[in-house]
């Protein structure tokens, strides 16, 4: 199975999307699949080549982070550039990763991607939804290792089964919304301020902590 990868993260080479894709690719290649191209959509100067790779690909893997309840604007731009392309016979796979920790935020864009596959007349092999990814830079290694293994597993399954199992996808995406108990725990973390730790650490590092509630555009 030959795949062309399109990384739709505005952070490009430094993206969490890239980290997840790398592990997926590892599993894919171990199972005998191959990646024919990896394009970073943020590099707009390569648009012509990106479109060519897209139109020639046997299997397309489009991955991006959730931005304001949908795909980043630059990914929408790419979709518009491709337009109502007839991709009959081609297959497509998606990854939507979000900073928000629950899957509920990504459900609409997932549905959009399914409709988009229909527009392109492509067979959709799955939409991988992975919430809570922004944390991977501060997660303990044990947790990231587990996540990377899961991505590798999906890469492998993609080649061996020719599609992704809904059960494995829902295991990866976790709960749609959190339980009352988990929300209660978050409430406690909020009271103690622990839930803001990541933000506060960076605000302080940038000498911006005192300004964190600034509202510069208020009249």
């Amino acid at each position: 199975m030959k795949s062309a990868i399109f990384n739709g993260s505005p952070r490009g080479n430094n993206s969490n999307t890239k980290i997840l894709l790398t592990h997926f690719q590892k599993g894919l290649e171990r199972a005998g699949g191959s990646v024919t191209s990896i394009d970073y959509l943020i590099q707009e100067k390569h648009l012509e080549e990106q479109v060519k790779h897209f139109k020639e690909a046997e299997t397309i893997f489009l991955a991006f982070p959730l931005y304001v309840d949908s795909m980043p604007g630059m990914v929408k731009q790419f979709i518009e550039t491709i337009g109502n392309f007839d991709g009959s016979g081609k297959k497509i796979l998606f990854l939507v990763q979000s900073g928000f920790p629950e899957a509920v935020h990504s459900m609409e864009v997932k549905d959009y991607l399914l409709l988009l596959s229909k527009r392109w007349k492509m067979e959709c092999l799955g939409v991988i939804v992975k919430p809570g990814v922004e944390g991977i830079k501060i997660m303990p290694e044990m947790m990231t290792r587990k996540l990377f293994k899961k991505m590798e597993f999906l890469g492998n399954e993609f080649v061996t089964k020719g599609k992704l199992d809904e059960k494995d996808l829902s295991k990866l995406s976790g709960p749609y919304k959190f339980s009352k108990f988990r929300l209660g725990v978050f409430g406690l973390m909020q009271k103690t301020g622990i839930s803001n730790f990541y933000w506060d650490k960076n605000l302080k590092k940038n000498n911006a902590f005192e300004k964190r509630f600034d509202a510069p555009y208020a009249n």
């Binding site: 304001v68 980043p72 604007g73 630059m74 929408k76 731009q77 518009e80 109502n84 959009y112 555009y217």
Partner: peptide, 19 residues
């Protein structure tokens, strides 16, 4: 456009997070 609102509006929405 392609079953969604326009890319230029989406790009603008991405820029609303400072609010």
């Amino acid at each position: 456009i392609m079953g969604m609102y326009s890319a230029i509006l989406k790009k603008f929405h991405d820029r609303t997070i400072p609010l």
